[in-house]
Amino acid sequence: MKLKKITLYLFLPIFVYLGIGALLLNYEVIQRLYIFPGWSIKHGATDEDDSTVSSDGPIILYENGKIIKYQIIPSGNKFSLVKGEITKKDTLNCYVDETKDTFRFKLKDSLKNEQSEYILPEKMLVISDIEGNFNGFKSILIGNNIIDKNFKWTFGKNHLVLVGDFFDRNLNVTECLWLTYKLEDEAERQGGKVHFILGNHEMMNLKGQTKYLRDKYQENSDTLKLDYQNWYAKNAELGRWLRTKNGVEKIGSFLFVHAGISKDFPKKYTIEEINQQIRNGIDKVFAGSEQANDIFIGKESPVWYRGISTEKETQKDVDETLLNYKADKMIIGHTIVDEIKYLYKQKVIDIDLEHKANSDKGKMFALWYEKGDFYTTDNRGTRTKLK
């Protein structure tokens, strides 16, 4: 009898853990249930994924007055783990496993919230939903002379506009973010600008919602003994940097927003107020369905709304939204389309494409603006006027 009680006491917590874990997994409250360290069960709806530990980082955290670098770097046929204290003066290396490239950068001296409105430059390259696809990102930037082969800014006083969703789906998210971070400083020194606009996947990862996270990142976080949520926390350099970004920006008379601004979005808010509320939503704790219903980061918000891309609104609806912000056009990503195209009598440009499928075939496409006209451009710099 004693043996039965001891066995019950030993195994009951395990059964409770597995039972509750299975329930949470079924309802997608969690995306994986750990059975043993390094071994877990994923939610059935998660995409097939055989990615595992590979190079990553640097991940930079501010801890107890120190700057700590975590990194996984290639070492022969294996990988080495790096953890150590650095200073702002140090040059950091970012190795890209996908393309075997390395680029270098330094940490910014300071960070501040981005402006919400900018003067229109002579030229812009606009792209959305890179989703960790470094090879495609690199090819469109080099092909259009935004950067050179050494990853240095060559676009002068012009602007690069990145319309959200650099996270999830592919395997070089960290590297795409650091390249953007690096190019920001270089562009500003030449009088240019890199705009990074928050999308729904940025919001999810910043809030610790990892439904679409590839296994590589879970494996890397286990290997580094650094929980993935800490990679983008308020004391992480990339987390601090992303918390300065906007959800909506106006460049000249053009509105740039990841998903779209709904006809039902309250018109009383200025662009600056929308951005402040989106940033506030990153670290706000929501109960139940509050987040899904939140007008700034919920399912009908500028970072999630699909009604414009799917043309559920009327021409009048879109016209009135643009008029409210004194804008001529809205440029959106988020919802995949077959080609970059005008919607609503050229009042909207939809730019989200199947970038990974295209780049695997040696192709990439983005939106190009020059002297009043919009074009589709490819990774060879060939441009076709948008009609």
Rank of each mutant, 00 (worst) to 15 (best):
S139N: 15
I140A: 01
I140P: 00
L141Y: 02
I142A: 04
G143H: 07
N144R: 12
N144M: 12
N144C: 12
N145F: 15
N145K: 15
I146S: 04
I146T: 07
I146L: 09
I147K: 04
D148A: 08
F151V: 08
F151M: 10
K152Q: 14
W153D: 05
W153H: 10
T154V: 13
T154A: 13
T154R: 12
T154S: 15
T154L: 12
F155T: 02
F155R: 04
G156R: 13
G156D: 13
K157R: 12
V161F: 08
V161S: 03
V161R: 01
L162M: 15
L162Y: 11
G164W: 00
D165A: 05
F166C: 02
F166T: 00
F166H: 10
F167V: 06
D168L: 09
D168A: 09
D168N: 14
R169D: 12
N170C: 15
L171H: 12
N172D: 15
N172G: 14
N172E: 15
V173K: 06
T174L: 09
T174K: 02
T174F: 06
E175G: 02
E175C: 01
C176P: 05
C176T: 12
L177G: 04
L177I: 12
L177E: 08
W178E: 01
L179A: 08
T180E: 06
K182Q: 07
D185R: 12
E186A: 09
